[in-house]
Design a protein around this nucleic acid. Structure first.
Lengths: 330, 330
DNA sequence: TTGTAAGCGTTATCAA
DNA sequence: TTGATAACGCTTACAA
């Protein structure tokens, strides 16, 4: 910067003013400075600016694993939205563990990210004492409930699963299984989707059979497949399956194929998320499609707003959704 | 830091020495300082450290789109490897456009990333004049050829596709189509994989029929599906298909299903990449599986090494691979 | 409209 | 073994 100033015959301050488009610089001087910048190949040092301003221009995004389609899609949208507001995104993987999620928060502060979007799947309000003070801009994205302590962008978990289950019933299914996570105690995604499932059954006068609840240790392709094997091998009569996510549904689809069960002929299947692959599966997957772009946009809007106004009252926002009817429930 | 120093009754410099585990601090003083740090809740300011050292501890990773399974997987591995070496990763999406790839380089320098891993799919050696000086640590990952100007971690494109095609021939296929990108002129992934396909045909004494080459505008699910439709509607007799990537193969699988063609009964299909979904597709997909973890580890090793020694001679490295035989070629 | 001085929080250097 | 000083590159506050 000093070099540029010398080249243009002005002070560093004037160079700074030109760079930041501040008013009060004569056109002539502005021109000389811009020319000097061009000649010298000068580029601002972001670290210095950061040190002075206390802002890094970086938002952290913490997800369980970036290579799960849902989180990849989420990241893509968040990166796009952040860029539009002049922020960069650093990605942290929590490994779907509470410790990883706590680490992500600590890390985010240490590295002076301006804010953090945390897609928590383990952490919840019961871990109160491990959560940070509310003075750091954190937006919770997805599922867990923190009792209004943070801004929260939620999925339409209950409504979505209810609509999906009702759709199976409309198609004539009467023995509907649900394949979901094993953490049915807390207030989390698993519980909420389960409640949506129960609500639909009740509303249509069907009984919920506890034997038709199959639980997973993780929301993965492998676990979904294994659950489908258990379902098929249990000998229970089942004509419909609600899977907790599309990724799990993809595993289920594969697991049913392993056992010679055809979808939708023998069993109808519905998922949740509308990952990009869903419409290309064989058969294509009916699913609850929350508006991912909306969620990413909301989350980024909330963090960036909170960067400017840290002490606003946290808000709760639920994404709109659509039920997509495809071959798996035809 | 001043506060800590005052609390411990020492100078800032001593605090710095303690924080960085530098020798020459008495145990007694070290203890006092650590206690003062605990009490005050002090945390280093990374920006200041960055300003002083010129290093940000961040590596950029530029990929076409983070929500394609292959790149998600790649990112997951790169983030893990980088963390093990004390680096963070910021992800940039290039949109699979040459301009986006150039931007990523410029961006990476502006933000003072310590280095950049660029998964270029458009840029190549012909764009010489737009490429930066070699003084900035860039590692090219994947496909394009830059004539030895950058460190380059390559896929086993030719060998892998050759092995995949030979496998189809072994299974009895005689009319083997290839579905790939449309940039068959440069030295890129598409050309190399095409050469591998041709090599296998030649070696086994089969003629390459130009009518069996189907090209795509992008390596996406949608394009793969559309190509399968064109293939089925062409009326040409085809008993095997080599798809340029697993994602394209997934689209092809769907497209063939749309036309009532069964895999592997009517047509055998093989992909490239071994994305996590491949083994869960219906039918499961035979594919060329490059060692992704190896590639990520190599790339991170190369950037971080180049951060320390910017002027080393660039090297060329090709990942090992395995041919995975699954249902789609049974 | 332009310039000067001070300071953001570290660390390298050298002196004590 | 410890400390004083200057410097990294920028911007805020104020003076000219």
């Amino acid at each position: 910067m000093s070099d540029v100033a010398r080249l243009a015959g002005v002070s560093k301050m004037t160079v700074s003013n030109v760079i930041n488009n501040r008013p009060g610089v004569s056109d002539q001087v502005r021109h000389r400075v811009l020319e000097a910048i061009r000649q010298s190949g000068y580029r601002v040092n972001v670290s210095a600016r950061t040190l002075k301003s206390g802002r890094t221009g970086v938002i952290g995004l913490a997800v369980p694993e970036i290579d799960r389609p849902y989180f990849g899609q989420l990241a893509a949208h968040v990166i796009d939205q952040a860029r539009q507001r002049g922020f960069h995104v650093a990605i942290e993987q929590t490994g779907a563990a509470a410790a990883g999620e706590i680490d992500a928060i600590a890390h985010s502060r240490t590295l002076h990210f301006d804010g953090l979007i945390l897609s928590a799947v383990e952490l919840d309000r019961t871990e109160d004492q491990r959560l940070p003070d509310a003075d750091y801009p954190i937006v919770m994205l997805g599922e867990q409930d923190f009792g209004g302590r943070f801004d929260h962008v939620a999925m339409p978990n209950e409504e979505g699963t209810k609509a999906a289950t009702a759709h199976l019933i409309d198609r004539g299914c009467r023995r509907i299984a649900i394949i979901t996570g094993n953490s049915l105690d807390g207030v989390n995604v698993v519980t909420r989707r389960y409640r949506g499932y129960l609500a639909a059954l009740t509303e249509r006068g069907l009984d919920a059979d506890p034997a038709l609840l199959f639980t997973l240790d993780a929301m993965t392709l492998d676990e979904g497949r294994a659950a489908a094997h258990r379902l098929a091998d249990s000998g229970r009569e089942v004509d419909g399956v609600v899977a907790v996510t599309d990724t799990v549904a993809q595993g289920v689809l594969r697991g049913l194929a392993d056992r010679g069960l055809r979808v939708p002929d023998d069993i109808r299947l519905v998922g949740f998320d509308d990952i990009p692959e869903s419409k290309f599966m064989v058969p294509s997957l009916s699913t609850v499609a929350p508006d991912h772009r909306w969620m990413a946009a909301k989350a980024v809007e909330l963090v960036t707003r909170r960067v400017r106004a840290p002490l606003r009252q946290p808000g709760e926002y639920t994404a709109p959704f659509e039920l997509l009817l495809r071959e798996s429930t035809r």
